[in-house]
C-alpha cells in the first residue's frame, strides 16, 4: 500500500524560535522547514520574525534576509530572483511556487515555507531532483531529425507551426507541477509527471521533429503517462502559467488517434 503518512524519520518536529527583540509595526512571521543532514535529528520547523522595513517584498527576499541576518545555516536554491531560472521552487503557504515571484503580502498570517512536497530532502529547502531530471531525460528532450543532412538548408517553420509549441517551450523545469500532483506523489517512480510530459509534448508538437511516433509509442504506458487522472493541480501550481494537464490530455488524444 502507498504510505499517506510520513515515514518515521520524516516526521516534522518543533524547532527554534527567533523572535524580534522589540515590537515593530511591520513585523512578519515565517515558519521554515529545516533539515540538517549532519545531525541525526528529524526535520523541524523553525519560527522567524522579521522586520519588513529591512527586507524586500518577496518570499525569496525574506529567505535571503534570514540567511544573512539571523541564521546563516538556512539552505535554499536561488539564482535569477526574477522567475526565469526555476531554482527557488518550494511550497509557500500550501502551494508550490517560486519564492522569487511570490509576494509576502499575498500570504495571510504566518508564511509557511516547505520544500517541494514528497521529495527526498538533501538539506532544508533543497530537494533531491535527480529522479525528476532522469525522467526529463527519458523523454529525449531534443530535436530528432535527419533533415539538415539531406537538404543542407535550415529547417523552416511557418508561424502556425511555431505557434504549436507556445505554452510548452517556456517551461523552466522548476518541478512545481510534478511536486503538486498527488498521482506523482504516490507513483513518482514510474509516472513521468507533468513537467517531463509537458516537455515530451513540446517535442511531439514540434513540426521539425521526425520521431513523434516513437515518442508516442514510448509514452503509451499505463504508468509513464496514464497515471495522469486530470487532477489539474499541476496547471493550478505552474508559476509560469503553463498548462501541463492540457499537454498531457493532447498526448493521450494523439495516442488514441494512432491506435
Amino acid at each position: 500500500m502507498v504510505a499517506f503518512n510520513l515515514p518515521k524519520n520524516s516526521k516534522v518536529l518543533k524547532g527554534n524560535r527567533f523572535k524580534l527583540s522589540r515590537d515593530v509595526p511591520n513585523k512578519r512571521a515565517l515558519e521554515i522547514y529545516r533539515y540538517d543532514p549532519d545531525s541525526s535529528n528529524n526535520p523541524r520547523v523553525d519560527y522567524f520574525e522579521i522586520n519588513m522595513h529591512e527586507c524586500g517584498p518577496m518570499v525569496l527576499d525574506a529567505l535571503i534576509y534570514i540567511k544573512s541576518q539571523i541564521d546563516s545555516s538556512l539552505t535554499f536554491r536561488r539564482s535569477c530572483r526574477e522567475g526565469v531560472c526555476g531554482s527557488c521552487s518550494m511550497n509557500i503557504d500550501g502551494t508550490n511556487t517560486l519564492a522569487c515571484i511570490k509576494h509576502i503580502k499575498d500570504v495571510k498570517g504566518v508564511v509557511k515555507i516547505y520544500p517541494l512536497p514528497h521529495m527526498k530532502i538533501i538539506k532544508d529547502l533543497v530537494p533531491d531532483l535527480s529522479d525528476a531530471y532522469k525522467q526529463y531525460a527519458s523523454v529525449k528532450p531534443w530535436l530528432q531529425s535527419t533533415m539538415p543532412s539531406k537538404s543542407e538548408k535550415e529547417q523552416l517553420q511557418s508561424p502556425e507551426e511555431r505557434k504549436e509549441i507556445d505554452g510548452a517551450y517556456e517551461c523552466i523545469l522548476c518541478f512545481c507541477c510534478s511536486a503538486s500532483c498527488p498521482s506523482y506523489w504516490w507513483n513518482g517512480d514510474k509516472y513521468l509527471g507533468p513537467a517531463a510530459l509537458l516537455q515530451a509534448y513540446r517535442w511531439i508538437s514540434d513540426s521539425r521533429d521526425e520521431s513523434s511516433k516513437s515518442r508516442l509509442e514510448f509514452l503509451k504506458d499505463s504508468f509513464k503517462l496514464y497515471r495522469c487522472h486530470t487532477i489539474m493541480n499541476c496547471t493550478n501550481a505552474c508559476p509560469k502559467g503553463l498548462n501541463p494537464a492540457q499537454a498531457i490530455s493532447r498526448i493521450k488524444s494523439s495516442i488514441a488517434n494512432i491506435e
Binding site: L6, H118, K120, I121, I122, W185
Partner: peptide, 9 residues
C-alpha cells in the same frame, strides 16, 4: 534523507 511533507501541508 527524509521525505518532505505532502498531504500534510
Amino acid at each position: 534523507r527524509p521525505l518532505s511533507p505532502h498531504l500534510q501541508i
